[in-house]
């Protein structure tokens, strides 16, 4: 788990660079609250002697939850999110290893549905303050407007692909800088923390599907911008690859990744919400036991008939 935290460092530094004090406050609150709730719930409600705050999973949940929030979110909302992520998303099911859904995403989706106003006013990057920052439409919101109006010229308001790759755009803390996230992903691949199957299958599916839509109807954004916008890279590299909630075999992981990619594009283009990554990952987390049941590795020594 600490390996994943190290891999998140580049994105953490990028969020500090783009959002300054706001990023520091949100991330610190989120991590501290997650660790506190993990300690308090295991100690006082479950009454366990062995404490699990040192295994790094609560820190990681806190970091990922913070990465999914806007930098001007009120502190009490972050604390509620941390409580839901750790309490409802993880410890209700029995703690690390037993949770069917990614805890950080449970927290994020809970907040997104409960506080739609606060959770969808994204500050423009480059403002280092915490409160009273200027907010603007994210690239995803612009894409949604273009699809709804069927007018391709709306897409000219999108930042350039390079800006979106580096992080000069509006969005939540961890999703703005795709390049830093990819750097972290390469680190995890090099240390063999994750395998390539899930990120590559998600990104590939989204690229192909978004490309087909773009060719048929130009009011759908071009696939490069679709991949670089929103939480797609963050989700594909760090959240869909959570060991507990993703399938075990390589073949299963590819099925899982492709399904997440398809669902993300469908929710983004035809759903009510501009971003579908978190919902897609949660839906496929629910299917993971089914995939594990039907996609089994060949037994060693078994003769092919």
């Amino acid at each position: 788990m600490y390996g994943v935290c190290i891999a998140l460092l580049p994105a953490l530094l990028a969020s500090l660079y783009f959002f300054g004090l706001g990023s520091a406050i949100v991330l610190a609150t989120s991590v501290v609250a997650c660790v506190f709730f993990e300690w308090a719930i295991t100690r006082f409600i479950l009454g366990r002697e062995r404490l699990t705050i040192c295994d790094g999973s609560a820190v990681l949940t806190g970091l990922l939850l913070g990465f999914n929030l806007p930098s001007n979110l009120p502190l009490w909302i972050i604390i509620i999110g941390a409580f839901v992520a750790i309490g409802v998303g993880k410890l209700t099911f029995g703690g690390l290893g037993s949770n069917p859904f990614n805890p950080a995403l449970v927290g994020r989706v809970f907040l997104l549905i409960s506080f739609p106003v606060q959770m969808t006013s994204w500050p423009v990057s480059g403002q280092l303050g915490y409160a009273d920052v200027e907010t603007a439409a994210t690239p995803l919101a612009i894409m949604k407007t273009a699809i709804k109006s069927g007018d391709a010229s709306v897409l000219e308001d999108l930042p350039s692909s390079f800006d979106m790759l580096v992080g000069q755009t509006g969005g939540s803390l961890g999703e703005v800088s795709a390049i830093c996230l990819l750097l972290g992903c390469c680190f995890m691949l090099w240390r063999k923390i994750i395998t390539w199957h899930i990120p590559v299958s998600i990104l590939g599916t989204v690229f192909v599907l978004a490309g087909i839509f773009h060719l048929i109807e130009p009011s759908y954004a071009n696939p490069v911008q679709v991949i670089l916008s929103g939480g797609l890279v963050l989700g594909a590299c760090f959240m869909a690859t959570d060991y507990v909630t993703s399938p075990m075999t390589a073949k299963g992981q590819i099925i899982y990744g492709v399904a997440i990619g398809v669902l993300t594009v469908l929710i983004r283009d035809f759903g009510a919400y501009p971003e579908g990554m978190s919902f897609a990952i949660l839906i496929m987390n629910g299917f993971t036991p089914l995939i594990n049941t039907y996609v089994k590795p060949k037994r060693f020594g078994e003769v092919k008939k």
Partner: peptide, 19 residues
């Protein structure tokens, strides 16, 4: 009212609260 968690009025909130 703006401190309320909207999720609890919707269907998923019913399942979570009941559990």
């Amino acid at each position: 009212e703006n401190y309320g968690m909207l999720l609890f009025v919707l269907a998923p909130g019913a399942f979570i609260a009941l559990g």
